[in-house]
Design a protein around this nucleic acid. Structure first.
Length: 278
DNA sequence: GACCAGGTGCCAG
DNA sequence: CTGGCACATGGT
């Protein structure tokens, strides 16, 4: 039996929303609680109002992974003031940008092109089930280490539903496993140089690199432009807008925590189908 | 059965 | 520099 739960104060936080907002893809409900893995570290957590009951995993580790140190009221003050952004904020209040591990984040988003969130989840779960290490008490296995995936063939990865993305996941696993890229060492680079380094992985373009920058390297000012953010930004820019790239526009428009804003707009648009008027 | 999904790389003009 | 297209898979 797990030890009794520790309490963790968590104002301005929405656990379920955060775990299912398209940052990670493996969170599992366990009764009233949620199970989520950070590497091989299992957290099992229930939210009761502004308090979290941490049934498994350390409180300090949970605080860090869930980014409870982000000052959300302060971040909200930087949000754009237009009606659509306010609507997204109200719909997603309490959602946080998690602190993911770079390898899991990179590999998972290499599986994402032209896939819906539900499909990415299915792929993540298949990879974990087949090639991940078991974690005591966890309904889901850990995300496979690069060394494990590097030993596989493309066919084995395709069998996890990866399709044409299999070759990119495999190449990334090999690059990391053989030390051609050190994802932890890259952390020290400034954002532009780090993005360039990430784009050296086959299959990583501007969008996926930005996802990894935002979700794994704490670059909260970065905006991944996917189909939804593209539509939203195009509407906000309107016809009178300059001949400016959508990403550049979004970065300026969304403000200093543009990545946060992006995540709220993305989730709101994806789950409701609503877009800004005009 | 089209159509679309948290894109990228490559090629023609 | 820009637009068009192939690339797999699964759900409406």
């Amino acid at each position: 039996m797990p030890p009794p739960a520790s309490r963790l104060e968590a104002r301005d936080f929405h656990l379920e929303l955060t775990l299912n907002s398209g940052q990670i893809f493996h969170a599992m409900p366990a009764g009233r609680r949620w199970q989520v893995l950070d590497g091989k570290q299992l957290f099992e957590i229930e939210q009761r109002g502004e308090c979290l009951l941490v049934a498994r995993g350390g409180v300090e580790e949970a605080r860090r992974f869930l980014a409870l140190d982000h000052n959300l009221p302060e971040i909200y003050r930087t949000f754009p003031r237009d009606a659509y952004s306010r609507e997204a904020l109200e719909a997603c209040r309490g959602m946080r940008i998690l602190r993911q591990r770079p390898w899991e984040c990179l590999a998972t988003f290499l599986a994402s092109p032209m896939k819906q969130v539900a499909h990415i989840r299915a792929i993540s779960l298949a990879l974990r089930e087949r090639y991940g290490e078991a974690v005591r008490g966890s309904l889901v296995r850990a995300f496979p280490r690069p060394e494990r995936l590097a030993r596989l063939g493309e066919k084995a990865l395709r069998a996890c539903g990866l399709g044409f993305r299999a070759k990119n996941v495999l190449a990334a696993a090999r690059r990391v496993a053989e030390g051609a890229a050190d994802l932890e060492a890259l952390r020290a680079l400034p954002t532009d140089r780090l993005r360039e380094a990430l784009c050296e992985f086959p299959g990583v373009g501007r969008k996926i690199a930005n996802c990894v920058l935002l979700f794994a390297y704490e670059r909260l000012e970065v905006v991944p432009v996917d189909v939804w953010i593209g539509r939203i930004a195009a509407r906000m820019r309107g016809r009178g807008g300059v001949a400016d790239g959508l990403e550049r526009f979004a970065v300026r428009r969304f403000g200093p925590c543009a990545g946060y804003v992006q995540q709220y707009l993305f989730h709101h648009a994806r789950t409701t189908g609503k877009l800004p008027s005009r």
